[in-house]
């Protein structure tokens, strides 16, 4: 579904991604793990079109997309839940959800919202509340629901468990499974490598802007290098 080949990108004069290559097959959960500053967020921002590509190719369902503007990529179904949630804090929960469907003009938006509120019940009673007044966990739910309102085909998740209480982390990972079961392909970036490798069918380890290691999720869980560096054993 997504194929990234030999990608170079960065901020200003600094090059962050130096020949990144990875594949996300349709219907799967693929994870990208790596230390702080390895270039995970930059990778997702490049996929979404917020960081320009210098060299290399991004193919999505056979189309070359690296030159498309962010909104055009959303239209194709590449939708991101950014690191730190980045909900619109001065807007209401309802408005955040409406904005998730910003590019949609089909008549199913209302139906989708009702369905999503079943998936994220804590948002239901808070529709008129300002999003910024919610707890971190609730904001993460909103950020995910907002992205789902766009009807993604590929969902990019950047550290969805960051800063959440353990119970909330479990909820988030359960939700990722359920979202994937609905037929949405997931590319998951995580620091919580344990959980990510458990849930993912395939995994990549990024180090200074390049893929260092890759393999099936379970395989990497028992890889000695991964164990030492990313699982803290």
């Amino acid at each position: 579904m997504l194929e990234v080949s030999d990608l170079y990108a960065g901020h200003g004069r600094i090059e962050i991604l130096k020949g990144l290559s990875l594949k996300v097959p349709a219907g799967q959960i693929v994870t990208l793990i790596g230390a702080n500053g390895a270039g995970k967020t930059t990778s997702l921002m490049t996929l979404s079109g917020l960081v320009p590509v210098r060299k290399g190719r991004i193919a999505f369902e056979g189309r070359t997309v690296e030159k498309l503007a962010p909104d055009e990529r959303v239209k194709l179904g590449i939708v991101q839940v950014p690191e730190g949630r980045r909900i619109f804090s001065h807007l209401t929960v309802q408005e955040n959800l409406d904005l998730g469907a910003y590019l949609r003009s089909d008549s199913d938006v209302g139906k989708d919202r009702a369905e999503l509120l079943e998936l994220f019940p804590i948002l239901k009673d808070r529709l008129q509340q300002l999003a910024g007044n919610m707890s971190g966990g609730e904001q993460q739910m909103l950020a995910m629901a907002r992205a789902l309102m766009a009807r993604p085909r590929l969902l990019l998740l950047d550290e969805p468990s960051l800063g959440l209480a353990p119970k909330m982390i479990d909820t988030v990972f359960q939700l990722i499974r359920r979202i994937n079961q609905r037929g949405i392909t997931v590319l998951l970036v995580e620091q919580n490598a344990w959980k990510a490798l458990e849930i993912a069918s395939y995994a990549y380890v990024i180090e200074t802007g390049k893929i260092k290691l890759e393999g099936a999720g379970k395989e990497l869980l028992s890889n000695p290098v991964v164990k030492q560096l990313y699982l803290g054993e």
């Binding site: 921002m45 979404s48 079109g49 917020l50 962010p70 909104d71 959303v74 239209k75 939708v79 991101q80 950014p82 980045r86 909900i87 619109f88 804090s89 001065h90 807007l91 408005e95 409406d98 904005l99 998730g100 910003y102 590019l103 907002r146 992205a147 766009a150």
Partner: peptide, 17 residues
């Protein structure tokens, strides 16, 4: 709403399209 979203967080607004 898009105007307010952009004022609130430009990147996040771009990410919803």
């Amino acid at each position: 709403k898009a105007m307010r979203a952009l004022a609130d967080d430009r990147d996040a607004a771009n990410l919803v399209g």
